[in-house]
Design a binder for these strands. Structure first.
Lengths: 344, 344
DNA sequence: TTGTACGCGTTATCAA
DNA sequence: TTGATAACGCGTACAA
């Protein structure tokens, strides 16, 4: 309806110039108290609102940051975004969300798009693996800070916030060993992403350091998906010597495995213990509740945002980068608490 | 590092003017085939990318839409955003997310901020109630389309996409009656938002139309929260004649109630049936799995986005608005399926 | 203390 | 077909 009011409208009304109005609005010292007051009042009365776009074009800072995730409605990612937004909004930034649908081509497109939109930085959980990082090398040349979270790439001078996936795998496995489990299987996501390899390595090391043999037959490759978990459990239970526990790199896969075990009337945790990864919300409500490795996603988002802020604030001075590794937190629930060990 | 290349850089290199470059880049017919080809080639070689900010300032269209939700990491809202993003991204729009933390002051601030950022529209699930809608009246005068989803306000000429909450309440209650439940209680969120009142009304009407008495003692006001649900169940079960079923307006509240019933060793669904609302992901994984009214959030987001698109495309022609009401889908699970009625 | 003039990167209008 | 110029709204040297 009504045209938006600009500083020129205010200037005209007051018979002064737009520059003066601008100064009044920006706490510029070079202005008299009275004109400042006058400007502020009429600005309010005319319902003036600054056009961030014009400011962005002028200053080269859009005060927008791009966030790139596979899907926004996965609890893990939406929680990270929650953290990012909570941290950045008070600093005057807006968060632009894009989804890749785990499609690498789409991811590259999204990044280009965000760059065209002149975002001041990009926070990303990549679907790429370290094998194909040419696209990022080229994009790296731009001046905008790039921060990886959760899924990172090994590019020099790039910031990242991840959790210690190795430790997560180690802790989960150690916990199962402590419960008395002897034949621990592992559901391993083998989509080429390093974090799953690190979890696997933590699993292996925990086994061998506890004097248990590492049995490759017990490691089932799968994708993060209920159906795959079911099939994995089937394969495991049909082995000559089936396992007595599962550490899964994904809660969703574990869910399918549990359905299968349930069909076999195997009692969890008494006959079989399981631990998942990600601490998806549903794990705590299931019966039995499922132990899982928590990744503190909101915290992770906040820290990623903080790293971004440090980086923009110092961008003129020196090229800084930072690699933060958060500790995983094993949440122990019923699915891995044998009666004999029960806490209370 | 390297400065961003503009159309001037291309123009200089080719000894033509920026205007010509612009025409070449925008498929303007008033240009020769050869210069066009030349421009396109050198643009590619110089790695030129259009600055959306400048275009936005010039055209008055930022190609950004603002989305306002209480918390982005609630499954329901993140799924709606998923739908919005899926629909809008292919049309060249970016989605800017803001959270209100269910704080009405913050919501108003967020809207102002988005407007300053020159978004082309705002999609919002409001925390306001119909009692205080002055802020919206003022903001309504702006030219940007405003679309409410899920939680709407009664403002004339405003678009909205909601579900039929009355029907949802009715269906849930009818289903419980069909299961043979006689004394159906209701956990009612009374934060002033209309959609909860409509669910309550559906509940009432289903009762009376089935010849069951409406008993105000069976309606417990609460906030959407586990702890409150627990207390509500306690109050209900201490009544002289306790209920034999609960229809809850919120899955979270129902969760608390179930914990309490579990403590009383009341068997669900044999002794007591429950139906929730929202179809939160955890409802399907619990034991027993919980029946709930699904709101098709992804679908809702997509439709909200479509309404927005219709509105921007016709904004010059005529002021259009649209109120879409989606049907709720009752998902029947174990928590409300008595053995005698079991399906298969 | 205020005004003048310019530039951020683009496109649209007019003139050539 | 191409060039010159203005405009979008703002902030800021520089001049007054």
């Amino acid at each position: 309806m009504s045209k938006k009011t600009t500083i020129y409208d205010i200037a005209n009304k007051l018979n002064i110039t737009a520059a003066t109005v601008s100064r009044a609005l920006n706490n510029n010292p070079r202005i008299s108290a009275e004109t400042k007051k006058l400007v502020l009042e009429t600005a309010a009365s005319m319902n003036y609102k600054q056009n961030r776009l014009a400011l962005a074009l002028k200053s080269g800072k859009s005060k927008n940051v791009g966030v790139v995730v596979p899907y926004i409605n996965r609890s893990f990612f939406s929680s990270i975004i929650r953290g990012i937004e909570d941290e950045l909004y008070p600093k005057g930034y807006h968060v632009i969300i894009t989804q890749t649908h785990d499609d690498q081509k789409r991811e590259v497109k999204n990044i280009q798009n965000l760059l065209n939109a002149q975002v001041d930085g990009i926070l990303i959980s990549t679907s790429h693996t370290n094998k194909e990082l040419e696209h990022f090398e080229s994009v790296l040349k731009k001046n905008v800070p790039f921060i990886f979270f959760d899924r990172k790439l090994n590019i020099p001078d790039m910031s990242s916030v991840t959790i210690d996936d190795y430790q997560g795998g180690y802790d989960a496995t150690q916990h199962l060993i402590d419960q008395g489990c002897k034949r621990i299987a592992h559901l391993h996501v083998d989509n080429g992403q390093e974090l799953y390899e690190r979890r696997l390595q933590g699993y292996k090391d925990a086994l061998t350091q506890n004097g248990l043999a590492y049995n490759p037959e017990y490691v089932i490759p799968l994708i993060s998906d209920m159906e795959a978990g079911k099939e994995a459990a089937e394969r495991l239970m049909q082995l000559p010597v089936p396992p007595d526990a599962i550490f899964s790199s994904t809660d969703n896969g574990l869910l399918g495995a549990l359905k299968y075990l349930q069909g076999l009337e195997i009692k969890v945790p008494d006959d079989f213990c399981v631990v998942g990864f990600s601490n998806e919300p549903f794990t705590q409500f299931m019966d039995p509740s499922i132990s899982s490795v928590d990744q503190s996603p909101v915290e992770m988002g906040k820290i990623a945002a903080q790293v971004f802020l440090e980086q923009v604030e110092n961008s003129e001075v020196i090229k800084v980068h930072k690699n933060v590794v958060l500790p995983p937190r094993l949440i122990i629930r019923k699915s891995s608490t044998k009666k004999i060990n029960e806490l209370k």
